[in-house]
Simulated assay, not measured.
Amino acid sequence: MMDKALIIIDYSYDFVADDGKLTCGKPGQAIQQAIAHKFETYITEGNPIFIMMDLHDVNDMSHPESKLFPPHNIRGSAGRELYGAVKEVYEQHKDNPLVIALDKRRYSSFAGTPLHQYLTERQIKIIELTGVCTDICVLHTAVDGYNLGYTMLVDKDAVQSFSQEGHQFALSHFEHSLGMTITGQS
């Protein structure tokens, strides 16, 4: 029975691979098994998984990120593909109706996407956030989730960032300002 959902945020080649266009590198690579394990667990339990993937177009200078970051996660590029073990588990389950992939164009997985509607239709009240970057897209998703009234979880072993200072700040913010449950070993 569905009662919670896993949200995998921006776990793409461009954000994680050594040669990704905007990579957090080894820290991002280190969480792939934790995310893949959660993916398998949620499928087994009959709970939905939402793959929220950053989307940009070539030379889209109207997007605010174009002034902040180099081009990344370009439509149709290999950089937008899921990374490593997460891609492998996705390929095994991509035809399962519990697996829903959505594009996003802002930091938050809720901004301009049908995510909230999909969660509401499934009567989901609890969401678990995973992916990158802890202090950017995961943080903005968490703030919006808080404002929408979701109970939220985050596993320290399933999120990561460019900066360990930013990562630690976001984890602290999740717990102390958003009331999220923090799990994990690290």
Score class of each variant (00 low, 15 high):
Met1Gln: 11
Ala5Val: 12
Ile7Arg: 03
Ile8Asp: 05
Ile9His: 06
Asp10Cys: 01
Tyr11Leu: 05
Ser12Leu: 14
Phe15Cys: 11
Asp18Ala: 11
Asp18Arg: 10
Gly20Thr: 07
Lys38Ser: 10
Thr44Val: 00
Asn47Gln: 09
Pro48Leu: 08
Ile51Gln: 07
Asp54Ile: 02
Asp57Glu: 15
Val58Arg: 15
Asn59Cys: 12
Asp60Phe: 07
Met61Thr: 15
Ser62Met: 13
His63Ser: 12
Ser66Pro: 11
Leu68Ser: 14
Phe69Lys: 09
Gly76Ala: 11
Gly76Val: 00
Gly79Pro: 09
Ala85Met: 12
Ala85Ser: 09
Val86Ile: 03
Lys87Leu: 14
Glu88Gly: 05
Glu88Gln: 14
Tyr90Ser: 03
Glu91Asn: 11
Gln92Asp: 08
His93Cys: 01
Asp95Phe: 11
Asn96His: 13
Pro97Trp: 02
Leu98Trp: 06
Leu98Gln: 09
Ala101Val: 13
Leu102Glu: 05
Tyr107Pro: 08
Phe110Gln: 01
Phe110Asp: 03
Ala111His: 15
Ala111Met: 14
Gly112Gln: 12
Gly112Leu: 12
Thr113Tyr: 07
Thr113Glu: 01
Pro114Cys: 09
Pro114Trp: 07
His116Thr: 03
Gln117His: 14
Tyr118Ser: 00
Thr120Leu: 10
Glu121Thr: 11
Arg122Asp: 04
Ile124Phe: 02
Ile127Gln: 06
Gly131Glu: 04
Ile136Lys: 02
Leu139Phe: 03
His140Trp: 10
Ala142Met: 05
Asn147Val: 00
Lys156Gly: 01
Ser161Gln: 07
His176Thr: 10
Gly179Thr: 02
Thr183Cys: 01
Gly184Ile: 02
